[in-house]
């Protein structure tokens, strides 16, 4: 079947720009994608150099890359991050990202032809969407990192924030007479993971662990990195039973999730639960202490479980 396909048929259907240049940088092929995006028909592009097509085209980096392709048969990458684009293609939907030209990831590969000469195939990928998305993520990540109330690795609240939040919260709920559940969550055998696979892997586990737990919590819950691999979660409006239910949900989700590059079930956690009740109020310290005591009980009982168990 494949011999029935012509080169042109294929190249005119790929969702990227393909331009083939001679050793003199003249266009011998300009695919349909490029025709559509640039408005320059193939007939007009053929035989011209990029400089003739785009008078402002001045690109030392491209010349060097072409020399390497033509003389040394060495394929070259011209990334969007360093070059932004090769062929200027205006984009219409100017958003608040401020981009006016299509962002491109460009690869140049040598194509030997029968007469012993060599052509350069330039493929152009439109990565504008990725750039917009990445910069949005970067902005968001930066905001989270700069926030002094958050842990820089995982982006969740830190201990400092926890105390600032917990004390007024206890005052609030003692007036409103609503309960508050507190979960102390610890990743099992985390030290072993760190020792065996290194801190970089350990960090990845922490980040993906936080992602999964966050998914199990509600918007109004407060999730804190308490220290190392230990986390605390506060669930306003939940009593002990509600807290234990939530803890079991977290435990099961962790058990069925792939964290970092580990198979599901390889990473587990133990959770101790306590609660604040207006019939039997306690201090913030005591709330945490009880949850911590239950966490150690869970660890001693063989890990990967929630304490207390409520039937």
């Amino acid at each position: 079947m494949s011999e029935l396909l012509s080169f042109q048929q294929v190249c005119d259907r790929v969702p990227m720009g393909i331009v083939i240049l001679t050793g003199e940088y003249r266009v011998v092929y300009w695919n349909r994608w490029l025709e559509q995006k640039t408005g320059v028909p193939a007939a007009q592009a053929t035989g011209k150099t990029l400089k003739e097509l785009y008078p402002d085209f001045e690109n030392k980096r491209f010349v060097w890359a072409m020399e390497n392709v033509l003389n040394n048969h060495s394929p070259q990458v011209m990334s969007q991050s360093l070059n932004h684009f090769l062929i200027p293609i205006p984009i219409n939907n100017r958003g608040r990202h401020g981009l006016s030209l299509m962002q491109q990831h460009v690869q140049i590969a040598p194509v030997p032809v029968p007469q012993g000469s060599i052509l350069a195939m330039v493929s152009i990928q439109d990565v504008t969407e990725n750039v917009i998305r990445s910069s949005a993520y970067t902005e968001l990540a930066q905001k989270l990192m700069e926030d002094s109330s958050r842990d820089p690795l995982t982006g969740v609240y830190n201990r400092r924030f926890m105390w600032d939040w917990l004390l007024p919260q206890l005052k609030l709920i003692s007036r409103a007479k609503t309960p508050l559940a507190c979960l102390m969550i610890d990743i099992d055998h985390f030290k072993k993971i760190n020792d065996q696979f290194g801190h970089a892997v350990g960090d990845k586990v922490l980040v993906s662990f936080v992602g999964v737990v966050n998914y199990c919590l509600r918007e109004s819950d407060v999730f804190v990195r308490y220290g190392g691999e230990e986390f605390a979660a506060f669930l306003p409006g939940n009593d002990l039973k509600g807290g234990v239910n939530a803890a079991e949900r977290i435990l099961n989700t962790i058990n069925t999730s792939c964290l970092a590059s580990f198979d599901a079930g390889r990473i587990t956690c133990s959770i101790g639960v306590s609660s604040w009740d207006y019939n039997d109020p306690c201090t913030g310290e005591d709330l945490l202490k009880t949850a911590d005591k239950h966490l150690y009980k869970a660890k001693n009982n063989g890990r990967n479980q929630v304490v207390p168990v409520i039937v």
């Binding site: 991050s81 070059n83 990192m145 700069e146």
Partner: peptide, 15 residues
């Protein structure tokens, strides 16, 4: 402040 290369850096490093 983060200390690991990501996003744009991978691409830039490759080039």
């Amino acid at each position: 402040s983060n200390d690991k290369p990501q996003f744009y850096e991978h691409e830039a490093m490759m080039e």
